[in-house]
Amino acid sequence: MEKMMRVSSSPHVRAKTGTTHIMADVCIALLPALIVGIWHFGWRAAVITAISVATCVLSEFIYEKLLHMPVTVGDLSAVVTGLLLGLNLPSTVPFWVPVIGGVFAIIVAKMLFGGLGYNFMNPALAGRCFLVISFAGLMTNFNYDGMTTATPLALLKAGETVDLMPMFLGTTAGTIGETSALALLIGAIYLLVKKVISWRIPCLYILTVLVFAAIFGGHGLSVNYLLGHLLGGGLMLGACFMATDYVTSPITAKGQIVYGICLGLMTGLFRVFGGSAEGVSYAIIFCNLLVPLIERFTMPTAFGKEGRKHEK
């Protein structure tokens, strides 16, 4: 008898794209925002992001080593978390802040729930929210060009108008990665073209925020006010890179639409009626919790079962 061939159940071919490719694409898409951040906020921005990434990767590695689990840092998901956390911090924070945030994001929000795929909250945002609650002063100290200034959203909240061009380019106050709408847009288009994300969540999210602001903002259809909301704060960063996190967003197409609208409503609510000027992080964290519920009510009907629900 000749040598036996390899057998396995079909299919016998796989698409090239693996988890690591997807995570690498997200990292690439975040590079423009990171570069603009370093350009405008200086070397501190680079160091803080680097510390954040290193902390996240090391936390995952050490946790898995200590628990004798297979090491999964090669999938680059911890790098993505570290990048997102870094981009969500002001450039003025002390260097121990990204360390605490990174450990919380990876250990508490991700690994304790079972690691990649099992966390119910976006780890980077969980880390950021933990930091905001614990060190509110440090986390809201925005500095631009050597001076402490108010963010555009804070100005909007105070009823003033904002200068839109700097907000588009990124030459304004804010966290490292959120200020340049242009850089974020380039990254988002990259992800859309590579089909890593779909248009559903970011588009509906942003659209809903604008509609909400137009109805409840008190400035009607003021272009300056609405564009201020669009370009200001973490909306672009949140909508394109964090609300689209696979693990913590609905898997069904209809669910993604519902989720995008929920995010927009929550963000609008926080921004217009809330105590602070910003609300993207909390809106995403809150809506993360709604995902199982949204999925439950947006399950697609199987092919050929449309209108035949009650047949066996």
Binding site: T19, I22, T72, D75, S77, G115, L116, G117, Y118, Y246, V247, S249, I251, T252, A253, P300
Partner: peptide, 11 residues
């Protein structure tokens, strides 16, 4: 490896 819930299977 772990499912990342990317939704590619659904599409």
């Amino acid at each position: 490896t772990a499912c990342i819930r990317c939704g590619r299977c659904v599409s």
